[in-house]
Amino acid sequence: MKLTKDQLMAALFLAPSLLLIAIFVYGFIGWTGWVSVSNWNSLMPDMSFAGLKNYLYLFGDYRFQAGIRNTIFFTVLFILSVIVLGLSLAILLDQTKKGNAVFRNIFLFPMALSFVVTGVVWQWLLHPSTGFNRFLQVFGIQPKWYTDTNILAGFQWGSIEFGLPVAIIAVVIAAVWQMTGFSLAMYVAGLTGIDEELREAARIDGATEFQIYRKVILPMLTPITMSVIIIMAHISLKIFDLIYAMTGSGANFVTDVPGVYMFETTFRGNYYANGAAIAMIMLILVAVFIVPYLIHSRRGTS
Rank of each mutant, 00 (worst) to 15 (best):
Y26A: 05
G154N: 06
Q65K: 05
D205R: 11
V138R: 11
H234E: 05
R214Q: 03
K238E: 02
V172Q: 06
W31L: 15
Q123P: 04
I68T: 08
L283E: 06
I239S: 04
G269C: 02
G259S: 06
W157Y: 14
G181M: 01
S227C: 10
S236D: 01
G181E: 01
R63A: 07
R268G: 00
L80N: 08
E209Y: 08
I229G: 04
V188A: 10
N70P: 03
T149K: 06
P258H: 06
Y261A: 00
F139S: 08
W122M: 01
M179N: 01
Q7P: 06
V84P: 07
S48V: 07
K238F: 07
F109Q: 01
A277P: 05
G154P: 00
N54G: 05
V257T: 09
V166P: 02
L221M: 08
G250M: 00
L184A: 07
N150W: 09
I204N: 05
Y146E: 00
L198I: 11
I169E: 01
G27C: 05
V286C: 13
Q211E: 14
L56W: 12
M47H: 11
R268W: 14
D205N: 10
E197P: 05
A189I: 15
N274G: 09
T96N: 09
L80P: 06
A174C: 00
Y272S: 05
I281S: 06
M111S: 01
D195E: 08
T222N: 09
T301D: 12
L43T: 13
Y272V: 03
A175L: 03
K98A: 11
T4R: 03
L294G: 07
S38C: 08
S48P: 01
L80R: 04
V257K: 00
R298E: 12
W177L: 06
